Simulated assay, not measured.
Amino acid sequence: MVRQSSNARLHLYDARDDAAALLLIDLQQAIDDVDLHGVHSNPALNDRLEELLTCWRGGNGHIVHVRHFSYTPGSPYRSGHAGAEFKASALPLAGERIVTKHVESPFIGTDLEAWLRRHGIARLVLAGVSTGHAVSTTARHAHCLDFGVVVVADACASFPLDEIDGERWSAEDVQRFSLSLLGSHYARIASTREVVQQF
């Protein structure tokens, strides 16, 4: 049975909507480490992120920067490692919310849900990396908590993936599949232009 919750009533949330927040997920320097991840699917990622941030900072200002701090020794996402620092295109400004997670979902072990509820936020606009991992987990978890979800397709990115039978999926194929799966049930898929032009 398909849920008929807030996602059934989705419209494109814009930066003037006081009940909407922009969540930027795992936009840390390590994502540009080609030796670690391979080349991601979105060469225009930085430009799209800057567009979203400019728009949202001129609107209601509900921006949440989610970062991943790994507990694994030697991980480039470990606190204190350069790879764990925010990308230049997604640096938080003073007063913008930062949520630090240690697993895929930013709702686990953090006060993110409580903060969103306290600010009257019911709708989330997601961007970041990777689409099939932390972005997908965040969208699914938010959907289960009855938040409305929009995933900004061209402000997300995926990495190449090895299948269980040894074949290699390109980053672009992983991106298309991940967005298609999210769009089938958990979120509305939109472009940066569609979101920004509402402003």
Score class of each variant (00 low, 15 high):
Leu145Cys: 01
Leu161Cys: 10
Asp146Pro: 05
Gly120Glu: 09
Cys144Val: 05
Gly166Trp: 09
Gly148Ala: 15
Val125Asn: 02
Gly183Trp: 04
Val151Ile: 14
Ala155Pro: 01
Cys144Trp: 10
Trp169Ser: 10
Ala114Asn: 02
Ser170Trp: 03
Val174Cys: 04
Glu113Gln: 14
Thr138Ser: 05
Ser178Glu: 13
Thr137Phe: 12
Leu145Glu: 03
Ala134Ile: 06
Ala134Tyr: 01
Arg118Ile: 03
Cys156Lys: 07
Glu113Ala: 12
Asp111Trp: 02
Thr110Met: 12
Leu145Asp: 06
Thr110Lys: 08
Leu124Trp: 10
Phe147Asn: 02
Trp115Asn: 11
Glu113Cys: 12
Gly183Cys: 10
Leu182Gln: 04
Asp146Thr: 12
Arg176Leu: 14
Val150Tyr: 00
Ser136Asp: 12
Ser158Thr: 04
Ser136Leu: 14
Val149Pro: 03
Gly128Pro: 05
Ser130Tyr: 09
Ala122Ile: 03
Gly120Ser: 06
Leu181Pro: 00
Phe147Arg: 06
Phe147Gln: 07
Phe177Gln: 14
Arg123Pro: 06
Leu181Gln: 14
Gln175Val: 06
Gly183Gln: 11
Trp169Lys: 08
Phe177Pro: 02
Gly183Pro: 08
Glu113Ser: 11
Phe177Ile: 06
Ser178Pro: 06
Gly132His: 05
Trp169Val: 00
Glu113Lys: 13
Glu113Arg: 06
Asp154Arg: 00
Ala127Pro: 13
Leu124Gly: 07
Ala122Tyr: 02
Leu182Cys: 06
Glu113Phe: 06
Phe177Met: 15
Leu145Phe: 05
Ser130Ala: 15
Trp115Tyr: 12
Leu179Lys: 02
Pro160Leu: 05
Glu163Phe: 12
Leu126Met: 14
Val135Arg: 09
Ala139Ser: 08
Ser180Ile: 01
Leu112Ser: 08
Arg176Trp: 06
Cys156Ile: 02
Arg168Thr: 10
Arg168Glu: 12
Leu116Ile: 04
Gly128Gln: 11
Leu126Trp: 02
Ser158Phe: 01
Asp154Leu: 01
Val129Gly: 05
Leu145Ser: 10
Arg118Cys: 08
Val135Ser: 12
Ala127Arg: 11
Arg118His: 15
Gly132Arg: 09
Ser130Met: 13
Ser180Ala: 15
Val151Glu: 06
Ala153Trp: 01
Asp111His: 11
Glu113Met: 04
Leu181Thr: 13
Gly166Lys: 08
Glu113Leu: 09
Phe159Tyr: 13
Ala171Ser: 07
Phe159Val: 08
Thr138Cys: 01
Thr131Met: 03
Val129Met: 14
Leu161Lys: 13
Asp165Glu: 00
Asp173Glu: 14
Leu126Gly: 07
Arg176Ala: 15
His133Ile: 10
Thr137Met: 15
Pro160Ile: 05
Arg168Phe: 03
Leu179Glu: 06
Gly183Tyr: 07
Arg118Gly: 11
Cys144Leu: 09
Ala157Lys: 04
Leu112Asp: 05
Arg118Lys: 12
Arg117Asp: 08
Leu126Gln: 08
Ala153Cys: 01
Arg168Leu: 13
Val151Asp: 04
Leu112Glu: 07
Glu163Leu: 13
Gly128Phe: 13
Leu116Asp: 02
Ala122His: 15
Ala139Gly: 04
Ala157Glu: 12
Arg123Thr: 08
